[in-house]
Amino acid sequence: MKMYKALALVMALLMAGVCAAGCAAPQADPTAAPTVEATEAPQEEATPAPEEATEAPVEETTPAPETEETPAPADDQSLQKVLDAGQLVLGLDDSFPPMGFRDADNNIVGFDIDVAKAVCEKLGVELVAQPIDWTAKEQELNTGNIDCIWNGFSISDERKEQVDFSIPYMDNHMTMVVRSGEGIESNADLAGKIVGVQAGSTAQEALLAETELVESLASAPVEFKDNMTALMDLETGGVDAVFMDDVVANYYIAINEKNFTVLSDVLSEEEYAIGFRKGDTALVEAVNAALTELAEEGTLAEIATTWFGKDTTVVGK
């Protein structure tokens, strides 16, 4: 009996300790994503200790472990790490056609995947497509499980604080998708209707920013884990419209021959780019160079035509 009590006490203390450590640590450094940088720090700080000292006076505000923010080329190992590993790990939500999704044979395919393969060929590495939970994408990136988020990932100011973006490679518009022939022809007709949206998407952000439109709806937008479930709910009458990327909507309607209409009222325009870890500048630059080369060669236009029927890319234009 005494043994048990002692054991229980030890375990309780351990738990409390772990909790405290987990909560207390990051408060010292609230701006950056701390856990990851902690794990990466040793590699990068091993050599350039003296360099850091010379850099310190230049950086006025945050002198401590923020070397990654203003990387001297010498200590940015991001590209070298990918080259050494011989692979670029691409994180994606594998239910996002036509950018990245599973085909009939369960292979991950898509426009983004084809472009990523071409880029990897330029870099001389192999592409590894890693399916992730989209809501946890930043954690996956920051903890080093993936090297980039490349999956119709659109640029936003909020995201810029968390990731470094490549050059944009495609434009995307966000619009309402409705059932055809039910009298909804513009966003004004949506008053008193129910709208669905993918949880955690930029479409959700953009929709919630339109307070006037959202308030005219019958209820708060219904959140779905993915666009496909939202569109299924649109078909079966659970929602009256789905707010999403038109690239995806057009592809879905074309493939499934659904009786849906994409409204021409564009609420938000955005650009697709590739998201990298903060400070992985060398890797970003290498990928940018590869993208530009692919655009000049016409490969990018070729890939776009096979997926969208026309060249929708914007690199070098």
Binding site: T135, E138, G200, Q204, E223, K225
Partner: peptide, 22 residues
Amino acid sequence: QTIGVAELFRLAQTAQTQAFST
């Protein structure tokens, strides 16, 4: 949340992406 019922975990995940916070 699979069928769009906004319960606790859905809200937590949405807040997570909105605030970039665990």
